[in-house]
């Protein structure tokens, strides 16, 4: 059905960003800046894709830019001992401000930017290449986290950083690595959103970063759970988009639905966690 197809295409960027969030969460940090990373990734991908005419180069350079910026953020936060949560929030605000300013500088507009020389994405059954990429990322993350030494050390950093340090390994190194990975994945997610639309629409990725964060928690910080949670969210989002046509729900309400849904999901998660705790 149409709802299912649209759900799958909404799921791809959410899944990618959530897997990125998974890596940072496993290393012990809750990454608030997912939203900012998505926006930077989307914007830088479009800038480079528009400049070179190739989608692939755009995505690759977007990854480079976003990863370096997230690394920079991490270094600044560590060096200046900023509150990580505030730093993430500031990064989100900064990212949106910078994207608008740079967009105004390069393209002369702070609104939608269309590129003439971009090839549209190839689609199969209405899905772009990003859906298999997202699922592949989830698969690879399962392998990396469970089976590789890097993954095990990463999880150890999140569970007990003192133990990791006592073994002579550098916790910060793993955290920085996870941030680079997260930046890369969020950049791909952002490009998924923008390339799907074919032009740079400033607020297309608004709210998706927060939803990705909650998907991480709802999926119980495991890759398979995250895939399931991402699918449920995407289904709800796509359903509400269709409902807008069917039942004449105003557009503003549709925009509010991701936030409300995330809120309800968090409440349910807390209730479940509380119930599980009381059985200890």
């Amino acid at each position: 059905m149409q709802v299912l197809a649209s759900a799958l295409s909404i799921m791809a960027p959410l899944l990618l960003a959530a897997i990125g969030g998974l890596f940072t969460q496993l290393s012990g940090m809750t990454n608030i800046a997912l939203e900012g990373m998505l926006m930077t990734g989307a914007f830088s991908t479009m800038v480079f894709a528009g400049a070179t005419g190739s989608n692939l180069i755009g995505v690759i350079l977007g990854i480079v830019v976003t990863s370096s910026l997230s690394l920079l953020l991490a270094l600044l936060t560590a060096k200046m001992k900023a509150n990580p949560f505030m730093a993430g929030l500031a990064a989100n605000l900064l990212a949106s401000g910078l994207c608008l300013v740079i967009s105004g500088r390069i393209y002369g507009t702070e609104g939608v930017v269309t590129f003439q020389n971009l090839a549209p994405l190839k689609r199969a059954m209405g899905q772009t290449v990003f859906l298999p990429v997202a699922l592949l990322a989830a698969l690879i993350s399962i392998l990396v986290i469970r089976r590789t030494p890097f993954g095990i050390h990463l999880r150890a950093c999140g569970t007990n950083p003192e133990a990791v340090t006592s073994l002579g390994m550098n916790v910060s190194f793993y955290r920085f690595c996870s941030l680079i990975i997260c930046g890369a994945l969020c950049s791909i997610a952002g490009s998924a959103i923008m390339l799907n639309l074919g032009s740079y629409v400033p607020n297309a990725s608004a709210g998706k970063g927060w939803i990705a964060l909650v998907i991480v928690f709802l999926g119980n910080i495991r890759p398979l759970g995250i895939v399931a949670a991402a699918f449920i969210f995407a289904l709800a989002d796509s359903f509400s988009n269709f409902a807008q046509g069917f039942w004449n729900i105003p557009a503003d309400f549709i925009l509010a639905i991701p936030y409300l849904f995330t809120f309800v999901a968090m409440i349910i998660y807390s209730i479940i966690r509380k119930k599980n705790k009381s059985f200890r």
Partner: peptide, 9 residues
């Protein structure tokens, strides 16, 4: 945004 960041340091 930058002040926001700095003030949290």
């Amino acid at each position: 945004a930058s002040i926001f960041f700095l003030a949290s340091c």
